[in-house]
Computed example of a mutant assay.
Amino acid sequence: MLTFETVLTVFQAYLEKDPAYEVVQTSRGLTVLEWNPPGDSWCDAHLCRTPEELRDTLLDSYANYLEYAELTQGKRDLTQAEARMIQAARDVMLERCQKEDIK
């Protein structure tokens, strides 16, 4: 059974690198906050009621990070090769969540 702890463990290294996203505990559950640069106000929030919702939200933010921070800096469209690379990296994270879930 997938747990919040498993998802947070899998995405820990990514979350430490990406200042735009933060996972916080709220009274209603874990929430993923998206911050506006330079980080003085948040621009979006996603309440994650289940570990699967957290996993999917973080998979999307991870893909966005790879596209904008690592590859294009928002200055151009992705190439097909880059899009495939991002999908492969996303698939690796998904697989890690599934493997951790089995333990």
Rank of each mutant, 00 (worst) to 15 (best):
F4I: 08
H46N: 06
L30F: 15
W42P: 01
L33T: 00
F4S: 01
S27V: 14
I86E: 04
Y65K: 12
L94P: 03
L15F: 03
D44F: 02
A81G: 04
Q25D: 12
Y62W: 03
N64S: 14
Q73G: 13
R84S: 11
Y62Q: 00
D91I: 02
T79S: 14
M1V: 09
E22Y: 00
L15H: 03
L58D: 07
T79K: 06
T26P: 04
C43D: 08
Q25V: 07
W42Y: 15
V7G: 07
F4R: 12
A63E: 09
E82D: 04
C48V: 06
T79C: 09
T6P: 02
A13Y: 13
E100C: 14
T31L: 02
E100H: 05
W35H: 01
V24D: 03
M93Y: 12
W42L: 08
Y68D: 15
P51A: 07
L8D: 00
S61W: 00
D77Q: 11
A83D: 10
I86V: 07
Q80Y: 08
E22N: 09
Q98C: 05
E95G: 02
T50H: 10
W42Q: 05
H46R: 01
M85P: 00
L66I: 11
L54Y: 14
V10N: 10
Y68R: 13
P51G: 10
Q80H: 05
R84T: 05
I86P: 10
L71H: 13
L59P: 04
Y68M: 05
P38Y: 00
A69T: 12
Y65M: 12
V7Y: 11
L78K: 04
M1N: 04
T79R: 12
D44L: 02
E82I: 05
F11R: 03
Q12D: 14
D56M: 07
T57S: 05
A88P: 08
D56R: 01
L94N: 15
A63N: 07
I102T: 13
V32C: 01
V32T: 03
A63V: 05
K103C: 12
D40P: 00
Q98W: 04
V23K: 05
P51N: 11
T9C: 09
E5G: 06
T31D: 00
D44S: 11
Q12V: 00
V23E: 04
V7H: 09
M93G: 03
A69I: 05
E70I: 05
L78Q: 07
P38D: 06
D18Q: 10
T31I: 02
D60N: 06
N36A: 15
L33M: 12
E53Q: 09
R55W: 04
L66W: 11
T31K: 00
L66V: 08
N64D: 10
D18A: 15
D60C: 01
Y62L: 03
K75R: 14
D18P: 13
P37E: 02
A13T: 13
A45Y: 03
T26M: 07
E34C: 02
T3D: 13
S61C: 10
Q87R: 14
R84I: 03
P37L: 09
Y14L: 07
N64F: 02
C48D: 06
E52D: 09
L59T: 10
E67Y: 09
Y68Q: 10
L54K: 15
R76F: 14
W35Q: 00
L30S: 03
G29H: 12
Y68S: 11
E22M: 04
W35C: 01
E34N: 01
T57A: 01
R49K: 14
L54S: 05
E95L: 02
D56A: 01
T57P: 03
Y14I: 07
P19T: 12
K17W: 08
